[in-house]
Amino acid sequence: MASSKPVRPKKKVKVSRVVLFAAIPVVLAALVLTGFFTFRRTLARFSLDFYYPFFQAVKHVELAAARQSLTMQSRQKLASAVEQLQRQNAMLAAQVQRLREMEADNERLRQELRMPRWSGYNEVYAEVILRDPSTWSEQFVISKGLNDGIETGDLVLTFEFAPRGGTPSCVLAGRVIEASARTAVVATVVNPACRLSVTLAESGANGTLTGNGSSSMTALISRLPLKSKYGIGEMVLTSGFSERTPRGICIGYLTDAPVGGSRAAVVHDGGLYAEAWMKPAVSLDTIRFVVVLTGK
């Protein structure tokens, strides 16, 4: 005999309750993440600014010692250095004059073509105050920050001195990834946190540059068009498409692809794009002074 069990009526689950239960963890997770990042940013800025006077004091002592050591050199050597600097100064002054004229021309042409006014950049001179041996070539802390107009994403340039007293040229060292009131953290072009839109000088191809880490001291340029031809030693420049990035600043040169032992600089990226490896134009280990381009 089959026993007749009473059938329980199915409970109807309200849709609004399900949505509510699903929304609570999402909102909580969002709150926790927001809280964590706010706490992290605040503590990072506080730590950097709290210790800034101590690090700066040490740098002042170092600078004073360096100045004193200059006076130990022979007068002849100092005189020749002054002469060389005066020559460089004159050449740079001439270049600045030429650039001013070009800027005025550019401004006039933009007005005639009714193009938006180019706002330009300010240059902030800063000194490297901190580095860590484990990330020596990947990032460093500089002595200027939000108070000087530096913001996250600003480009950081350094100088490449030409041999025999020629005028120095600016090359890209990296990008500001964190800024406190008086200091800023810079990720160099080999740091995976540094991403930029770049152009290759000869082929004119555009790609995206991402740091590859200090062990290889290279950066990867991906999303390059397949049809263009690329050669080892081709110059890599900023494209100007990234935010806060002027066009045409030298970053480095294409180098051998590290995989496959191939002599070609470029390999296929899933058959759709090509990718290449870049060696920085300057030695990132020895940077001491930098110029940060800030928005006007």
């Binding site: 992290r40 503590l43 990072a44 730590s47 950097l48 210790y51 901190l130 860590d132 990330t135 990032q139 460093f140 802390v141 990834i177 964190e178 953290v185 946190a193």
Partner: peptide, 11 residues
């Protein structure tokens, strides 16, 4: 420890 990481700019 956290303060040192932040001073050196580690994420």
């Amino acid at each position: 420890g956290i303060a040192m990481d932040f001073v050196l700019g580690y994420a």
